[in-house]
Structure formats: C-alpha cells, structure tokens
Nucleic acid binder design. Structure first.
Length: 462
RNA sequence: UCCCCGAUAGCUCAAUUGGUAGAGCGCCGGACUGUUAAUCCGUAGGUCGUAGGUUCGAGUCCUACUCGGGGAGCCA
C-alpha cells in the first residue's frame, strides 16, 4: 500500500474512464440492491464529492464483507473507472476487489447519514472533519494559508517567526497566559518570577507585531503567521483563546499604503478561494449561507470604502438610529455601530481610520491634530472587524511621551525604543485574524467551527 | 464578566391548567430498486443534565450547581 495512488478528487475530475484504480477511503453511505450489487459512496477528504463504487455480488468477498461496509468504515477498492449512467457523476468505479480496512459499528458511530447540529459536532471534534462541512472548511482553510504565503512571497516579504513565548506585552492586545514551571503558591505569597524558568515573567504571545517591527526595520517587508493567545474571558462567536494571526510589517510605508495592502490582501485571498475551492464554496453558498458568494463577489468588485473615524461618527449621529451605546466623538465604535456602517449604510467592506488616540495603544503614529492616531480597522459585513492595523510611531520623542501618557515603563521597551534611536523609518502593519477571514469566506456563524480544535474559556478538549 | 434562552431516545425536537413519555431521522429486520437526502413496512431504544425542595403526585413549579446556545463588553 502506497500513498501515491490517485485520490477521489482526481478520479472524479481528471482521470479518464478505462483507468485501473486502487483507492482507499471512508464509506459515507451504502445503498444495496438485494439481487445484484451495492453502491458505496467513498470519500477520502480530497474533495466534497464521493466516488460512487459499484460492487457486484460476484466480486470475491462481497457476501461476507459488504454488510460491514457501514457509514464511517475504512475501505479499499480496486477496479476500473467507467462512465456513469447516473446523472450525478461523470464516472464511477466498478469494483474488482474490495477490502474492509476498519469497521465502524453502525450502532455506536456518532455520525449518521443526516445533518447534525454544529453544537453536537463540537463535542466530537475528533470526528467532525469527516463531515461535508468540516471537510470543506479544512480545505478552504488550507487554501487560505497557501494564498497568504503566496501573496507575501510574491511581494518579496520575508516570513519571520516571532516568538510564541514572550516576555514583552503588546499592550492593549489583551490579557496574557502566563508560562511558568513554578508550582502555584499555596501560602498566599506572590509568585517570585525571578525563580521561574526564564528568570522573569513569561507569557504566550498576544501579537508578534513588536518583534515584526524589529525585522521590518532591518530586512524590509516581513510577515508573521502563527498562533496567538488571549486570556480574555470572551464568550462570543467571534473570539478564541487561541487563534492564528497574520501580521505584515512594512518599512517606508504610511497608513495609506497599509490600507491598500490590507485591501489587496483580502481580495487576493477571496479570489484564490473562489478559484481553487469552487466546489466547497458552492457548498457553503447552498447549505450554510445563501449570500456568501454574492458577498464575496461584492468584495472583489468594489473598492473598500474608506471613512475616517470622525466621518463615521457623523454618519452614525445623522443615521436617526437609536443606539444602545450613544455615539460620541472620543469613544470607541461599538459592534452595533460597526455593523450599521458596513452592513446597512455602505453594504460593503469599509476601512475606518484615524481613531482618537485616547483608546488606542502607544505604538500608533500621532497625527498633527493632537487628537488622533493613524490607526485603521477593516470592517466586513457579517463578521465585523477582521483587520486592525496602524502606521507606527517612529519618532523617538513622540513615542516616549506616548509611553508616559499610557503609563508604561520605557525601561521594559528599551529595545523597541532603540529601533527609533538608530535609523528609524516610517513603517506600518496590520493583523488579520485567520479564523475571522474564514468566517467571511464560508458564511459560518461560529468561530469555533472554523478552527480544528477551538480553545475558549472552559474549553480545551482534544 | 454581564444579560437572556436552553438541557427529554443515538441525533433533531414535542408533551395541554402538575396526573409516572411521543414523533421524525438514524440503527436493526423485512420488501423493493442503476441507486445517489433512495422509497415502503416493522422492531428495538428513555433514572426526562445533577442535587435538593414544594406536592397525594413533578419532564412540567421553586432553589442551587454543571454544561450548552445567543447577545454585550474586550479584540483579530
């Protein structure tokens, strides 16, 4: 047995009838004809569709084996690929041999030939990739990851691995998980991190941005692509405790360039998925969200609407809507505001920029107006904020005063300030939440269903 | 963390003013069939989330807890 055999996807869409085939996979369903033969629907994860295997009763082993080929069992067939008289497939496999590799007790196997709720499937996350929806998500997610690397590689960005364990805090990004080998204190005494593994308090990263800036100001455009951890007690359909983030950082770049990069980036990913995962994308449109293809086409066909925070506030004030959270210049936009702007008013992705400095972190470039910073958020219908980014403050004196303003210790960020002391340049970057991007692409509602093994408060199974 | 809602068969759900549980699907058995969400008939399958309480009597009412869902905040 070798894993070089063609897979179902190529048999269905590429290989010509007449080919001799050796194929292994899992049974999705079986239909028996009492006096003659059985149809076995074989899936191997290479695509949404199954290979229909026609097994005649005269195939050796048929009588003893076919009843065991229940939903979920693993099987292997050899035979000849033939044109299918059925309307639903181009070709089918006429089996000449059959082999049951692993049984799946039909009485106990949790996946049935019917739809299951996503809540139920979350409880069996080790089996859910065997379903149509989660197989499709896995393929789309893979496509997105490839598209991301290709996008940046084609633009000469360097892929930089920033640390997962870190002793710096990208302030404002959220609560951090502590990494320690110390036993929990039982006497109520505060933990002495000087005694800890790293000799100081260490955490799981909440962002690779600060380290990304180090490389961007040395080797040119870079991007990070890795797991990120937030210990926030967030219980929503859009938050994970462990998620994947892509963070480009570009020297000699201002906010304008940053926004353009973000827009090109998202459009590129959308285009790749539509081109390369057409079958899966059609499934999402048919079964998950009837508007998803239209939404994605809309994204490709239009420039993202750019609106300053100040303009956004004016639009919200003039909307005549009753807001649960009052709109006032100087307060952060709430979900209801963002949703109205992108879903009801503009009905397309928008980029809100130049936010008040009062609620934005220290590293963002301060505008001359003394009130705003060069920050931008990309908001998309259905998902909300998908990208957050900014031009970074590269002026040493301004940055130092911002540290003071934010109550931060410059000593801890000595290396970050060095970047401004020696050869400082304007630079900018952003962070894209991978799982939120996949929500947008698939029309899935809950972020826990677009990552293989979701980690959320009180949940870290598998 | 806050606010709402929920937990009954393997899955999805129903059960009247409180009177000791039903359906569909799935499974299994049978019939039929180049089928493809197959179709038709039948069988089996439940300590009603956990622990208390009210009551002659609780799936149903009350309390606590656990878990799940939706929304909010925080953010990507």
């Amino acid at each position: 047995m070798a894993n070089t055999a063609p897979r179902v996807a190529s048999l269905l869409y590429e290989v010509e009838p007449g080919a001799k085939v050796d194929i292994s996979g899992w049974v999705r369903t079986r239909r028996d004809s009492k006096h003659g033969f059985s149809f076995v629907e074989l899936n191997d994860g290479s695509c949404m569709s199954n290979l229909q295997v026609v097994v005649n009763a005269d195939v050796p082993g048929y009588e003893e084996t076919i009843k065991e080929m229940t939903t979920g069992s693993s099987v292997r067939f050899t035979g000849e690929l033939k044109e299918s008289p059925g309307a639903k497939q181009r070709v089918e496999l006429h089996a000449e041999s059959l082999e049951l590799l692993g049984v799946a007790d039909a009485e106990k196997y949790p996946l049935q030939k019917k739809r299951h709720s996503f809540e139920f499937l979350r409880e069996i996350a080790h089996l859910r990739p065997r379903t149509n929806t989660f197989g499709a998500i896995a393929r789309v997610r893979n496509c997105v990851c490839r598209a991301i690397h290709d996008f940046f590689q084609e633009r000469t960005f360097l892929y930089v691995q920033t640390p997962i364990i870190t002793t710096s805090d990208c302030e404002g990004a959220g609560e951090m998980f502590t990494v320690t080998t110390l036993e929990p204190s039982t006497d109520g005494q505060p933990v002495d991190y000087a005694e800890d593994f790293f000799g100081k308090k260490a955490s799981l990263t909440v962002s690779g941005q600060l380290e990304g800036e180090i490389y961007a100001t040395a080797v040119g455009p870079v991007y990070t692509f890795g797991p990120t951890f937030r210990a926030e007690n967030s219980n929503t359909t859009r938050h994970l405790s462990e998620f994947w983030m892509i963070e480009p950082e570009v020297p000699f770049c201002d906010l304008e360039g940053d926004m353009q990069l973000a827009e090109d980036f998202i459009k590129n990913i959308v285009r790749r998925c539509l081109d390369e995962c057409a079958e899966d994308m059609k499934f999402f449109n048919d079964r998950i969200d009837k508007t998803v293809l239209e939404t994605l086409k809309n994204i490709l066909d239009n420039d993202f609407k750019r609106v300053s925070y100040t303009e956004a506030v004016e639009l919200l004030e003039q909307s005549g809507k009753k807001w649960e959270y009052p709109v006032e210049w100087g307060t952060n936009l709430q979900a209801e505001h963002e949703r109205w702007l992108t879903e009801e008013h503009f009905k397309q992705p928008i980029i809100v920029f130049d936010y008040p400095r009062s609620f934005k972190p220290f590293y963002m470039y301060c505008n001359d107006d003394g009130k705003t910073v060069r920050a931008m958020d990309v908001l998309v219908p259905g998902v909300g904020e998908i990208i957050g980014g900014s031009q970074r403050e590269h002026r040493l004196d301004v940055l130092e005063s911002r540290f003071e303003e934010c109550g931060l210790d410059t000593e801890e960020y000595w290396w970050y300030l060095d970047l401004r002391r020696y050869g400082s340049v304007p630079h900018a970057g952003f962070g894209l939440g991978l799982e939120r991007m996949i929500l947008l692409l698939t029309g899935m509602q809950n972020i826990r269903d677009v990552i293989p093994f979701p980690r959320t408060p009180k949940n870290a199974e598998f």
